[in-house]
Computed example of a mutant assay.
Amino acid sequence: MPHVLVLNASYEPLGVVPLRRALILVLNGKATSLEDSGALMHSATQAIPAPSVVRLKRFVRVPFRGTVPLTRRALFARDGGRCVYCGGVATSVDHVVPRSRGGQHSWDNVVAACRRCNHMKADRHVSELGWRMRHQPAPPTGLAWRIIGTGHRDPRWLPYLRPYGAEEALARIDGRTPA
């Protein structure tokens, strides 16, 4: 099912919801559609363009947001789906300092790795093997990462996410240098 970007009344990105939830917000008059996906949703009496971006009509106060949650999907997005050791396609998660040696499960210690590198590294430190990482792990920052970390992307969302660091985030995901 397609997903829809939800913006606050101030155009600040709030999150991503399923198309059904976005349609309910629009039909109940709680949100307006800013971008259409090009598809039509049919009922018994009418056809409604399916939204891709909606904006709430009333401002929603958002409590303090901590760091971006560490999920497998967000981790692979941060590392561009590539192994930080060899640059191959990443299929697993690796702890730089192994958990068996006191390493934490945190953004600073978790990286995407290919199965081969993860198996060869096992529970050793990178320095013991003489390996180098392509980049140092760090927590992603910016509101755009909350949206991009969900794994749902739509090119129509970019103009609304650009002020919140989407260019840098998407460039990092796609393995390019930011424009």
Rank of each mutant, 00 (worst) to 15 (best):
P13K: 06
M120D: 12
V54F: 04
M1L: 10
V111I: 14
P98D: 11
L161I: 08
V53T: 04
L23H: 12
P155L: 06
M1T: 10
L158I: 11
G151R: 03
S100L: 10
V111Q: 04
A112G: 14
M133Q: 12
G151V: 09
P137L: 09
Q46N: 09
Y11S: 08
D123R: 08
V16D: 02
L5F: 11
W131S: 02
V96C: 03
S37C: 12
P51F: 03
E35N: 02
V84G: 01
G102Y: 11
P63L: 01
V6W: 06
R65A: 12
L14P: 01
F76I: 07
T32S: 13
G66Y: 06
A44C: 02
G130P: 08
L40Y: 12
H105W: 11
E168K: 12
T71Y: 05
R132S: 15
T150W: 10
N109K: 02
P159E: 06
R21A: 14
W145R: 00
R72I: 12
R55K: 15
R73Q: 15
V89N: 05
R132V: 05
C86A: 12
E12V: 13
E35K: 15
R78E: 05
H95D: 03
F64N: 01
R101H: 04
V6Y: 07
S106T: 15
R21M: 06
G175C: 02
P155N: 06
Y85R: 03
R156G: 01
R124D: 09
C114S: 07
H3G: 14
S106Y: 01
A171T: 03
D154G: 06
H119S: 14
G87A: 10
V89F: 12
T71K: 04
P2H: 05
E128R: 03
V62I: 15
V126A: 00
R78W: 09
R134Y: 01
P137S: 11
R116S: 13
R124C: 07
I24P: 00
L34F: 09
P69S: 05
L14M: 15
G87V: 11
N118W: 06
L7G: 06
R58C: 00
R101K: 14
R115W: 13
A39H: 13
S106R: 13
N8Y: 10
P140Q: 08
N28I: 00
H125A: 02
L170F: 06
V126Y: 01
A50K: 07
N28F: 07
R124W: 05
W107P: 04
T91N: 02
L170Q: 01
G103F: 12
Y11I: 00
R72F: 11
D154T: 09
V26I: 14
M41S: 13
G29K: 08
G66N: 06
K30Q: 15
R99M: 14
G38I: 13
D123Y: 02
R176V: 04
Q136V: 12
G81W: 11
E167S: 12
L14R: 09
R78V: 07
T67K: 11
V111D: 02
P51D: 08
V6F: 05
P159Y: 08
L75D: 03
R172I: 00
A179P: 14
V111T: 10
A122Q: 09
R99V: 15
R156T: 09
P63M: 03
P18H: 09
Y160A: 00
Q136T: 15
T91M: 05
